[in-house]
Design a binder for these strands. Structure first.
Lengths: 189, 189
DNA sequence: GTCTATAGTGGGATAGAC
DNA sequence: GTCTATCCCACTATAGAC
């Protein structure tokens, strides 16, 4: 019954994960192979398996570091801001665009929830929930932000499109809805 | 100067592209290999290269069929609808969820624009532009829809999350903004 | 239009010695 | 903790015969 869901990494494993994240961020997802990673660490690929069970565990550990960083960035954005949603959107966007390959790894497949520290996913989601106080609104805002980022990273917007304007448009629209639904629920108290 | 940008496919090539799309849709992007495709057609992989120059051309042709279908679906959704944006969102979502692997292939990388029929991308975008009459709004709506779909396909929403509600929230919010900006620009006429 | 043969590259992973 | 040796897999693509 009492099951250790997430095994802590050894110090050496943490070094390997850090190198994996660097490799991913600098050279993209295709470059994140056990061979390339070993090369970066100046060891042989098979040695990696003494520290991490397989590639999935490596990716999960990289994702975990990304979620920690994202959570920290969003928490910081929320401190003493007059317009929390605007600040959150800017911080989320900045994080994604500074770490495009990491962002994709974190978000374009199911989270390896059973290999993540307990509560981490919730911690990353919490700032947005605090800002809009409504799960449904929060999901809509997240989807908008995620869509803007993915379309920008995939170069699907036309050359020269004013993406700042599109962000303002979406955030403004959803902010207004969030304010409205906040008022609605106050009326029920 | 007069350059044929897109070479028309031979009938046999079209059969191959149709088979490729079926393979993609039924078994996912990883299954779309020249070998698997040949196997499905009961020929050998090298034979494919007599009909299509390489895998990139095959993918571009599959993407083109997807864009044609999407454009048709969106055009149909716009006919005689009291709430065009609501209808468009529903049609876009239905298309994406009925063809998840195709949708990803179409949207998570840069479009191979030089291998697509002229005007096709614009044709797929036109219905939304007609519905909101404002490029910036249109981009925000597209991003919202794309984000909802990608997060749903990646199973990033919690089990049991009310996604219909999130769609309504986003579409309502952006509809209101679009109406507002339509009024603003009418004032300037 | 299809074939066989094959080149060239790359991937994840294991066994067992040191 | 690292190594060598190795397995087995898969992929795109080309050459040249039929």
């Amino acid at each position: 019954m009492t099951e250790l869901v997430v095994k802590p990494l050894t110090p050496r494993a943490r070094e390997i994960v850090a190198a994996a994240r660097e490799l991913l961020e600098h050279e993209g997802a295709d470059a994140l192979t056990m061979r390339r990673l070993a090369e970066r660490l100046s060891i042989r690929a098979p040695s990696l398996y003494k520290h991490l069970p397989d590639k999935a565990a490596l990716e999960a550990a990289v994702i975990a570091t990304g979620l920690e960083d994202l959570a920290a960035v969003l928490e910081a954005a929320l401190i003493a801001e007059a317009e929390p949603l605007v600040a959150l959107a800017a911080a989320y966007r900045a994080f994604a665009l500074s770490h495009p390959h990491l962002y994709r790894l974190m978000n374009d497949r199911p989270l390896p929830r059973d290999q993540l520290p307990a509560g981490l996913e919730e911690r990353a989601a919490a700032p947005l929930l605090r800002a809009v106080e409504n799960q449904t609104c929060a999901r809509a805002v997240w989807a908008f932000a995620h869509g803007m980022i993915m379309l920008e990273l995939a170069q699907r917007f036309p050359q020269g499109a004013d993406l700042d304007a599109a962000w303002r448009e979406g955030v403004t629209a959803l902010q207004a809805r969030a304010d409205y639904s906040r008022q609605q629920s106050k009326g029920l108290d």
